[in-house]
């Protein structure tokens, strides 16, 4: 944790929200201080997992929460409503709870927000709940003054039950790393709409609830599935670093095997943004025992959202906590996103 000790700014700046080391430092230094300890056998705040798990007899109640502030509110492939449902459903699934019991949804709306727009966002919330097999059972509404927030903020909380928690710790040398599809789609689709270069692209976000696909994988892999993360903010890189740190292994990734859409690759080149640190909203990264890898891969590929799944790397004993990228030309350390993701200037 000493790696994050340098983040001690007087003021909380945007970099603390990018999902990397700065944010983890903020949680350690402030949010988790004296809070969130659920005792032995449970997973609380300090574990910094995708959610909390409370033991109930021989099963676990999983809880997770997520706030959504995406700009633009409607983007190619989805909108803030679909994102709010998928984000929370997927976080539950990453803990092993692939059948969400229910969600809550709190909305903070800016004075002057369009009713039509709100209706269309709730239409997409309904559709996404149906896709995930869940619903919204309680909520909260606040309206704030013009200019006090940017349009609409949504918070969703989800609960689910699972028999087994996937903790991301316990990976061993030889374990295989698997991704369920193309990387970086969501982040680059959003960046391309925001960017002032006025790119004409066909990039679409991959936002989707993936609990059904994850359920198939967990059924196929059973105890052979050791680690499971959704590579949202900070992208594949952050997810792999968390696994490597929690398990105390190194991870070597074979870059040419990572599924990437040509257009994502090309727009990433233009904007100077690495798709591997760019967010996904409908993907998962698995760490799997070698003997289970082929079965899990087949199960994921049998689901429509997992057709491009691939094994992309493996755990090694050297350099615990680090992720090495074998580029096909040479190798380098994969770094985590730091600061704001800004397009390069030249």
């Amino acid at each position: 944790m000493t790696r994050n000790a340098r983040f001690i700014d007087e003021r909380i700046t945007l970099k603390y929200g990018t999902g990397g080391g700065a944010m983890r430092a903020l949680i350690e230094q402030i949010f988790a201080k004296g809070l969130g300890d659920l005792g032995e056998g449970n997973i609380g705040l300090a574990a910094m997992d995708d959610g909390a798990a409370i033991r109930l007899g021989d099963r676990y109640l999983v809880i997770t929460t997520d706030s959504h502030v995406v700009q633009p509110i409607v983007f190619p492939g989805g909108d803030i409503g679909k994102l709010a449902v998928a984000g929370t459903v997927n976080d539950l699934a990453m803990m092993g709870a692939t059948d969400p019991l229910a969600l809550t949804c709190a909305a903070i709306v800016e004075d002057g927000f369009s009713r039509e727009m709100l209706k269309s966002i709730w239409e997409s919330i309904r559709a996404s709940c149906e896709e995930a097999g869940t619903t919204i059972v309680t909520g909260d509404t606040k309206v704030m003054g013009h200019g006090e927030l940017d349009g609409l903020v949504l918070n969703t909380t989800g609960v689910g039950i699972t028999d087994r928690i996937v903790t991301d710790a316990g990976l061993e040398p030889g374990d295989q790393i698997l991704v369920t599809g193309t990387m970086g789609d969501h982040g680059l689709a959003i960046m391309a709409t925001r960017n002032e270069l006025a790119l004409e692209t066909e990039l679409v976000s991959d936002v989707a609830p993936i609990n059904a696909m994850v359920r198939r994988a967990l059924e196929a892999g059973g105890d052979g599935i050791i680690a499971l993360k959704d590579p949202t903010r900070g992208g594949l890189s952050s997810a792999l670093h968390e696994m490597a740190e929690k398990s105390g292994v190194g991870i070597v990734i074979d870059e040419p095997s990572i599924p990437l859409r040509d257009e994502v690759r090309a727009v990433g080149e233009l904007l100077g943004i690495d798709p591997l640190v760019s967010a996904n909203e409908g993907k998962a990264v698995f760490g799997v025992r070698p003997e289970s890898a082929a079965g899990v891969l087949d199960a994921i590929r049998s689901h429509p959202l997992g057709r491009n799944a691939a094994i992309v790397g493996e755990c090694v004993a050297e350099r615990p906590g680090f992720v090495v990228l074998d580029t096909g030309f040479g190798s380098r350390l994969l770094s985590e996103a730091e600061g704001e993701l800004l397009p390069r200037i030249c």
């Binding site: 074979d254 790397g313 755990c315 680090f322 090495v324």
Partner: peptide, 18 residues
């Protein structure tokens, strides 16, 4: 160098060590 992990000697790091 910071972005791409500095200049560590990675020549020994290969997949399939285990």
């Amino acid at each position: 160098w910071h972005q791409y992990g500095g200049h560590p000697d990675l020549s020994s790091m290969k997949r399939g060590v285990a």
